[in-house]
Amino acid sequence: MDQLIATLTEQFFNALTIGGIYALVALGYTMVYGIIELINFAHGDIFMVGSFVALTVLTTLGLSGPVSDPGMLAFSLAAAFLITMPIMGVIGVGIERFAYRPLRNAPRLAPLITAIGVSFILQNVVYAWRGPSPVATPQIFPVQERFELFGANIAWISVFIFLVALVLTVALQSFVSRSRLGRAMRSTSQDREAAQLMGVNINVTIALTFFLGSALAGAAGIAYGLQFGTVSFSLGFSAGLKAFTAAVLGGIGNLSGAVIGGFAIGFVEVITTQLGYARWSQAVIFAVLIIVLVFRPAGLFGQQLGERA
């Protein structure tokens, strides 16, 4: 019994870690869909690029292994997030400017295909940059540091990743609901023409959405590297697919829905694994998605941002 409780506790934290990463990526899907109704298939690869940018930032800062001094660790982590997230934001804005904005009034399929193209371009750029082999990333957060809970040894890194996901979600949520720019985002999402007539700069607002979504993907990329220690150019596809599923599960366009969807997928994955059906985890995730959509076509929490879909 004690053994079972320890195992379940450990799995609970495994799910929080992986779910936190999915949630951060899912936010980008849901924001972009909410504002321009585009399923940004390149977003998984933006997450992948984020993990490589984070790797480069850490290496440039001269960090190669665990940092044990707490002050130094906090400083290094802050530097990693504060440098990587804006870089990724700018990359996201660049993609929007050159790949999506020219097609904003084109038929829906055009930007969708473009998004798939951008996904391949990002993969090939990273392939050319770092090669086909997986690359080890500096795990500056000491993954061996643990605490005991219900007989299980939990690594602090899982708590850290969960907290990062939580803090960034809350920050994003309050930005969107409280700030002026957030209000511009919500109005653009509700009715682009009306918002424009009321003086909202649509281009800036949409660019801002891409900036925030890509920055969050960058944060997820950092978290992924810290936890798993290896990144590869092909990483984006499966993570992107799961995060997209998370966004649909929570109700695409809905910020808190995407986050809860991300954690839900993390838990589904871990539960199937614990039951001994690891091979089936993808099938189970999509089975859950189908069941949810049959009963709640708009996802678990419905759509909040977009009202025209």
Binding site: T7, E10, Q11, N14, A15, T17, I18, Q227, F228, T230, L235, S238, A239, E269, V270, T273, Q274, L275, G276, A278, S281, Q282
Partner: peptide, 11 residues
Amino acid sequence: TNQSFAALLTA
């Protein structure tokens, strides 16, 4: 499709 062995090892 899954790059993490954490849950598998726990299970």
